[in-house]
């Protein structure tokens, strides 16, 4: 019996995982969400920015991370447009170009933000740290035009923005090592304030930077996105998905516990 339980076909586990996602997707629930300090810090920082400030939002991720990072990008954009904070969108990842431009456009349409006045999407340039350092001297030396080909000099919100000196905050939406690169080059050399929204895989490695203040806030994966939506009182995919996620986590935790019970019982028998 025990051996059978240990040798269960992995496809049965796959079916259980699918069911744990499908059932709550069809029958959604709404559990209370507690907000962590790093998420609140970023939210409060943006809230405290005076109207007319400019922030930079870096879409440094590809489709493999959109489930976690798109909800937080939407929430951040909504907050900025509602607060009259201007947004410069850029990306260090080629795949981030299409996603970033579509997302900004989508939220701008919802909130009535105007291209060139409330936001601008600059697009992508290869070279990561070279791009970051280049913008530190002069943004136009790296991005002569925005993604639509309009010269930066002709964009109203960019007339007074030359480099990081006029940018209040950089938020890096990251699925790889880009946050460390932003910290190493933009924060250290140009004193640019940095916050991050990251995928689950890299949450843990961000904490040393949070403690030193090299990151002023952190949104952690889909849980962080749900927390941000809670703070804005604007429920969307983040809250919906973290509730569904609850059941899958319960299932996986249950599988770990059952697997270990079976393991210990078997080991005792063998002894």
């Amino acid at each position: 019996m025990l051996e059978k339980l240990m040798d269960i076909d992995r496809r049965i586990i796959f079916i259980l995982v699918v069911l744990a996602v499908i059932i709550p997707t069809l029958l959604p629930i709404n559990l209370p969400i507690s907000v962590s300090a790093p998420t609140r810090q970023l939210h409060d920082y943006i809230n405290a920015l005076p109207a007319g400030s400019t922030i930079m939002l870096a879409f440094d991720y590809g489709p493999a991370s959109l489930a976690e990072l798109n909800p937080m990008a939407k929430a951040l954009l909504k907050q900025c447009f509602d607060k009259d904070v201007r947004v410069i969108g850029i990306t260090l990842a080629p795949e981030g170009t299409a996603m970033g431009s579509t997302l900004i456009q989508e939220i701008a349409d919802e909130t009535g933000a105007i291209d060139g006045e409330d936001y601008v999407f600059l697009g992508y340039r290869p070279g990561e740290e070279l791009v970051i350092l280049g913008m530190g001297s002069d943004i136009a030396s790296v991005f002569e035009t925005d993604y639509n080909g309009k010269p930066l000099a002709d964009i109203p919100m960019m007339t007074n923005v030359t480099n990081y000196d006029q940018i209040s905050l950089l938020i890096d939406l990251a699925s790889g090592s880009s946050t460390e690169i932003w910290i190493t080059y933009a924060n250290v050399r140009y004193n640019l304030q940095i916050a991050a929204g990251v995928t689950g895989v890299i949450i843990s490695q961000m904490y040393p930077y949070l403690q030193t203040g090299q990151l002023i806030g952190l949104i952690s994966g889909i849980a962080g996105a749900a927390e941000y939506e809670t703070l804005l009182d604007a429920p969307a995919k983040g809250i919906l998905w973290i509730n569904i996620e609850s059941f899958v986590h319960l299932l996986i935790a249950g599988l770990v516990v059952i697997g270990n019970i079976a393991f210990f019982v078997q080991r005792r028998k063998e002894e």
């Binding site: 992995r10 586990i13 493999a64 770990v256 059952i258 697997g259």
Partner: peptide, 30 residues
């Protein structure tokens, strides 16, 4: 990009959810 690359990229990495669950049951031992 939206209908070919995005779904394949996102799905490819979501496969890991299944393998993590399976590995958690089979190999995650104290």
């Amino acid at each position: 990009f939206n209908n070919v690359q995005v779904p394949m990229d996102a799905t490819m990495f979501s496969l890991l959810a299944f393998f993590i669950a399976s590995a958690a049951y089979r190999a995650f031992r104290a």
